[in-house]
């Protein structure tokens, strides 16, 4: 279970990151600190949705290559650098699914299922755990992505909105609908 600590930056850390970005724009060799900082969260984002660990490392490398190639296009206009990287990661990830190189995987932890049962006002039982696990498998891709980001990765609505390129409020409404859909599948016999 990963909370995304990098999203909740202090002002000083954000300023420091902006300096790194400017330096990396003029010299790709200075991209190192950004790579070091975001390698693990980007890898975890990809690995969460992939079965093959080696493939997840490869896709992570591709994400950073793409980021290096396009960093001159990045401007800090409301979307934090981390969210910009997640957008690239999402694109690369789905490209790998389309190319049939990787298998879309949903990785769920029991503890998250129990927390979700609590959220859904359902009894925390082993039977319900199995039903919820099955219900998650029935979700379409869009609501599944939202459930993954909100409940498995515990991202804020603001960050979800930035990654999916929608407003914070839209992210909130969509997450709520995804949860309602999940509840519907949960109660289906």
């Amino acid at each position: 279970m990963t909370v995304n600590p990098l999203y909740h930056h202090t002002h000083e850390r954000l300023e420091e990151e902006q300096v790194w970005i400017q330096q990396a724009k003029s010299n790709p060799e200075l991209f190192g600190p950004l790579y070091k900082k975001y390698h693990e969260p980007i890898f975890r984002y990809i690995h969460q949705r992939m079965d093959d660990t080696e493939m997840a490392f490869d896709v992570t490398s591709q994400v950073f290559m793409k980021a290096l190639k396009n960093i001159h296009k990045y401007e800090n206009r409301g979307v934090p650098f981390g969210s910009w990287l997640y957008r690239i990661a999402k694109s690369e990830l789905y490209q790998s699914f389309r190319d049939k190189q990787a298998l879309r995987t949903v990785n769920v932890e029991s503890v998250t299922l129990f927390e979700m049962m609590d959220e859904m006002d359902e009894d925390q039982s082993e039977i319900n755990k199995k039903i919820l696990f099955r219900a998650l498998g029935k979700l379409k891709e869009e609501p599944l992505q939202l459930i993954e980001m909100r409940f498995f990765e515990r991202r804020s609505f603001k960050e979800i909105g930035e990654i999916l390129d929608i407003t914070e409020n839209n992210a909130k409404v969509k997450c709520f609908r995804a949860l309602e859909k999940l509840k519907k599948y949960f109660h289906e016999k």
Binding site: D51, L103, R104, T105, V106, V108, S110, L136, K140
Partner: peptide
Amino acid sequence: MTNRKMNLDR
């Protein structure tokens, strides 16, 4: 997504 794998507690 038609082809999807579900993992529990990987």
